[in-house]
Simulated scan of single mutants.
Amino acid sequence: MGELLRYRYLFEQMVRRELRQKYQGSVLGVAWYLVNPLVLMGAYYLMFGVVFTLAQHDDYPLFLMVGLVVWTFFSQALLGAAPSLLDQGALIRKAPFPRETIPGAVVTVQMVTFTIVLGLVAIVTLGVRGTLAPALLLLPPVLVALYAFVLGLALAVSVLHAFFRDVAPILSAVLLPWFFLSPIFFEPADITQKEGARFAMQWLNPVAPFIESVRSILYDGAVPSGATLLYVAVAAVVAVLGGRVLFRAMQRELAVIV
């Protein structure tokens, strides 16, 4: 931790550079981060809210949008972090610094964008749903836990991809079915009454409790269940500690292989 604090200026510069590169030459800039979930929201609302009527939720587009924004942050952060060490290979070979700052900067940029977009979605959702409630006080710690969870996974996939170049394409392939199995356009109870299947969808999918927590707070105006909050906290700690341990164990050879 002390080493990371000493290099905080480098980390800040990496975040700034990543932001500039991400939106350089783009007319809409950060608005593109909103366009993607908006398009998906329209498509899935048509499919599951009109054609197949899978789920019956009031203000279903907002139900969809909250889940899509959380998923977009999760998936884009991991996809961006996976090749980040290889992309910064020249810097790694030239200078000694905490290598964690590279995938960390990618996740932080995605988090900044995600926070802006979620803020816009929250304003609309709270206004339409009337869910301005004390439960909102739980949103910041849930988002911090989400950041830590994604950061831990990003550290793992970035260092693994540096050694095994199949990790990024495998991750890209896995995220597609993972998306459809996540409670983005449904709740587990919408599609099955079997306790085993509902348990698997809710607890064996590590991103599901994060989606449900944010949706409970913004869409329902309710405090997530104690089990969900505990899961979110534990998943965040396990992910960030596990990711850092793996990263530290494998980073010694980075200057040679990138």
Score class of each variant (00 low, 15 high):
G2F: 13
G2W: 13
L5H: 11
L5P: 00
Y7D: 08
R8H: 08
R8S: 13
F11C: 01
R16A: 11
R16G: 00
E18M: 08
R20S: 11
Q21R: 15
G29T: 09
L34A: 13
L34C: 01
P37Y: 09
L40T: 07
M41A: 10
M41T: 07
M41H: 00
G42I: 03
Y44N: 00
Y45P: 01
F48G: 02
H57D: 04
H57C: 04
D58K: 15
Y60K: 13
L62Q: 05
F63D: 02
L64S: 06
L64C: 00
M65P: 02
L68C: 01
V69H: 02
T72S: 15
S75Y: 06
A77S: 15
A77R: 03
L79W: 00
G80L: 04
S84F: 08
L86S: 09
L86Q: 10
E100R: 15
I102L: 15
T108H: 04
M111R: 08
I116C: 15
G119K: 15
V121I: 14
A122M: 15
I123A: 15
I123E: 11
V124I: 13
T125N: 14
R129N: 08
L136C: 06
L137W: 13
L139G: 08
P141L: 09
V150Q: 07
L155W: 11
F164D: 07
R165N: 07
D166H: 04
D166K: 01
A168G: 00
L171R: 03
P183E: 01
P183L: 03
E187G: 05
P188Q: 05
T192R: 04
E195D: 14
E195I: 13
A197Y: 08
A197T: 15
R198G: 14
F199N: 11
Q202S: 12
A208P: 04
P209S: 08
P209N: 01
E212D: 13
S213H: 03
V214G: 12
V214E: 14
R215D: 06
I217W: 03
L218N: 13
L218C: 09
Y219G: 05
Y219D: 07
Y219K: 08
A222M: 14
A222E: 09
A227S: 12
L229G: 03
Y231Q: 09
V232W: 00
A235P: 01
A239T: 12
L241T: 09
G243N: 07
R244Y: 12
R244T: 08
L246E: 01
F247N: 01
F247W: 02
L254A: 04
